[in-house]
Design a protein around this nucleic acid. Structure first.
Lengths: 340, 340
DNA sequence: AGAACCTAGTTAAACGTTTACCTTGTTTCG
DNA sequence: CGAAACAAGGTAAACGTTTAACTAGGTTCT
C-alpha cells in the first residue's frame, strides 16, 4: 500500500481547459511570450481553477536543472555553520532555489556514493574543504558547480570563499602580543583544515619577540571538548598568558572549566576563540574572538554558486572576506607577576 | 551561455555496453531481481566503467517520489530548531532522503505559492504550526504527508509531535513554587503558538497559593530581545521572585541585562527558560530550563513522516515526548526579605 | 503592391527512467 | 513424461514538461 496523493493537474489538463496547446501553457507559466488578452485570460483562469503548479521533475528532465542547491556542512549545531546557512539560505530563496542540507557529521566522511547521488539532485554545491581529496576529485569530475568555503584553500583553481584564516589569526596574535602576552597555548582541532593556518599565524604574530607556544589538539570543535582539555592546559605547567582555541565553542568550554578550577579569566589568563558566534557575548567573561563572517560567507558563496549555475563568468579572485577582531572581556593586558 | 555539465551516462548507455535491455539494468540498480552471473558481471562492469548513477528526476516522474523531504522552521539560528534538524536529518539520511530546509523567517509568512512549489519537490513535510490557518489548509489539501511539531496542536486530526508545552510549563511552575516563589513574571513570545500554553500552565501551577503574575511579550525569541525587555521587567515594580521566559534565548538575555544592572541571579531573582539549548549550561549562572527534547522531536517527526511516505499506517497517538526539568544555578529558594 | 519581418500560437520529439506485460527456457512434480 | 510453475530477461508505453521548428495571419518597409 502506497500513500495516496491526489493526482495533480498537469499542463495538459490546463491546456485542454483553456483550449490551447501545452506549448502555449508552458510559455505562459514561464512568462516568456506575449499573449492575446483572451488567451491569457483563459489560461490563467484554468490554472487557477485546477490549482495547477508545474511538476519540477518533469521540467528538470528537459532543462537539466533541479531547482535545488546543496550545502555540505560539518555539524548543523555549530553556530558558525548555522550562520553560513542563514546567509546562503537567504540568497538561495531569492533565486528561487531550494536548499538541501547535508550534515556530514553523520558519516564522518560521506561515502562517495551518497555524494554522487546528492550531486544529481542539485544544480550546485557549497562544500566544506574538509572532504578527503579523492572525494573532492570525484565531485569536481561530475561537472557540478562547486563553491568551497574556507581560505586559504587547497583548491585554488576552484571557487573558495571565506575569511583568510591566516590573516585572522595574525590579527588575534597581534592583539595578544600588544597586551603583553608571551606564553601562549593554542588548542587546535586537526579535524579542520583551517586549524593549522590559525596556529601558524598565531606563532608568526610573535616573530621578533621571545614568546613560547604550546599546541594542543581537540577531538571535536565543541564546548564539551574545550572543558575536557582545559584542565590539562591550565594546570600542566606554569600558567599561560593566553589560551587561544580553534573556535568559540572550545573557548567557551575552557572558560567554564577555568571557572570550575577557580582560575580567573582574564585576570590570570586570557582566552580567545574564533568565529564570533552569538553566544560568546552572553557568557562571562564575554569572549574575545575574531569574527569570521559566517553569514556573509554563506551569502557570498551562494551568490557565486548561483552565478555559476546560470553560466555567468564568476571571477575567482573576489572571494576573501575581511575578518574583524572582537575584543571583549576575556582578554586583558598581562599583569606583571612575582617572578618577572 | 549556460553552464556546461558533462552529459552523464544514461541507463541506455549502460544497457548497450552490457548488451542487455534498459529494463534489466533498471531492475539491477534497484536490486529487485536475480541475474545470471554473466549478466550481473556485465552490468556492474558497465555501471562502473561509465560511472553511471541514475537520474532521480527521471525516476521521480514514474514513481512520483522526489527522494526529498522538507522541513519548515522559523529560524535556523535558534538552537532549538537546530537540534530538531539534527534529529530529523539523522533519520532522513538513514532512509536515503535528502533534507530541504526552508527558513520561514525570511518571509515571515511564506507565500502560498512558494509553499506549493516546495510541496512538489518533496515527498513529505515537517512543519511548524505557526503558519496561518489558510496556508495550512491549502497545504493539507495538496495531499502531501505532513507532520507538525509542537503540542498541544491546533491540528489534532493530523500528526503532531513534541513535548506537551502545558505539562512542561506546569513542571517548571511547580519547581518555582516549591522554591517559595510567589511573584512571577512571564516573558512570552506571542509569535509562537506555544507561548500561551506555557503562560497558562505557569499560572495554573500556583493554583491554591497566593501568587501574582505579570505577563510581558517579546517581539522575537532572541537574547537581544530578552536584554531589551529585562530592565522593564526587573525595574518596573518591586522585584519579582522569578522570571520565566518563553525560551532559553530570552532568558539568557535577561541574565545578561540583570548583570549589567547589578541585579544578582539567583540571589535576588530566579530566572528560567525553556528548551535546554546547549548554551544555557555555559552562561553564568547556568540556566535552569525545561528540556523540550528538540533532537528527539526531530527524530520522531521524521520517523513518522517516513512512515507516512511509505504508506504505513502511522498511529496518531504516540507522539508526545516527555519533557524534563533541568535545574541549574539560575533558580534558587527564595530568601525572606525585610518586608516579609 | 510585394517582400520581409513580426507575432501568437501549434506540432511533435525528446528528456531518462519504471513497470505491466510478454517470451523463452528451465525446473518441479504428480 | 507432460503440465504447471518459475526464473531471467525483453518490449514498449508512460510519466509531464520544454523547445526547435513550423504555420498563418498581420504589419512594416521600400
Amino acid at each position: 500500500m502506497t500513500v495516496q496523493r491526489k493526482r495533480a493537474a498537469t499542463i495538459r489538463d490546463v491546456a485542454e481547459a483553456a483550449q490551447v496547446s501545452t506549448a502555449t501553457v508552458s510559455k505562459f507559466v514561464n512568462g516568456n511570450q506575449r499573449f492575446t488578452a483572451a488567451v491569457e485570460a483563459r489560461i490563467s483562469q484554468a490554472v487557477r481553477d485546477l490549482g495547477y503548479s508545474l511538476n519540477p521533475m518533469a521540467r528538470g528532465m528537459i532543462t537539466g536543472k533541479t531547482g535545488n542547491v546543496g550545502i555540505i556542512i560539518l555539524d548543523i549545531r555549530n553556530p558558525y555553520f548555522t550562520n553560513m546557512v542563514k546567509g546562503a539560505s537567504r540568497v538561495a530563496a531569492s533565486s528561487e532555489l531550494n536548499l538541501i542540507i547535508a550534515d556530514a557529521a553523520e558519516s564522518t566522511s560521506p561515502e562517495l556514493g551518497v555524494l554522487q547521488s546528492l550531486c544529481r539532485r542539485v544544480d550546485g554545491l557549497i562544500v566544506s574543504s574538509r572532504l578527503p581529496a579523492p572525494v573532492i576529485k570525484a565531485l569536481l569530475e561530475t561537472g557540478t558547480p562547486v563553491v568551497f568555503y574556507g581560505r586559504p584553500s587547497p583548491y585554488p583553481q576552484n571557487h573558495n570563499v571565506g575569511c583568510d584564516n591566516y590573516a585572522a589569526a595574525l590579527m588575534l596574535g597581534r592583539h595578544l602580543r600588544e597586551l603583553g602576552h608571551r606564553r601562549i597555548s593554542y588548542l587546535g582541532f586537526s579535524g579542520a583544515r583551517w586549524s593549522v593556518d590559525r596556529g601558524r599565524a598565531l606563532q608568526d604574530a610573535f616573530k621578533g619577540v621571545d614568546a613560547s607556544f604550546r599546541m594542543f589538539d581537540a577531538n571535536a570543535p565543541s564546548a564539551e571538548e574545550g572543558e575536557r582539555l582545559a584542565s590539562t592546559i591550565l594546570l600542566s605547567q606554569e600558567m599561560d598568558d593566553a589560551i587561544v582555541t580553534y573556535n568559540d565553542l572550545l573557548a567557551m568550554g575552557v572558560l567554564l572549566e577555568a571557572k570550575a578550577l577557580g582560575i580567573r579569566v582574564p585576570e590570570q589568563v586570557s582566552v580567545a576563540g574564533f568565529d564570533n558566534i552569538a553566544y560568546g557575548r552572553l557568557v562571562s567573561p564575554a569572549l574575545t574572538t575574531v569574527d569570521m563572517m559566517g553569514e556573509a560567507t554563506g551569502e557570498l558563496a551562494m551568490r557565486k554558486l548561483v552565478g555559476l549555475i546560470k553560466g555567468e563568468t564568476v571571477p575567482l579572485d573576489d572571494d576573501t572576506l575581511q575578518s574583524r577582531i572582537v575584543a571583549r572581556e576575556s582578554t586583558r593586558a598581562r599583569k606583571p607577576r612575582v617572578n618577572d
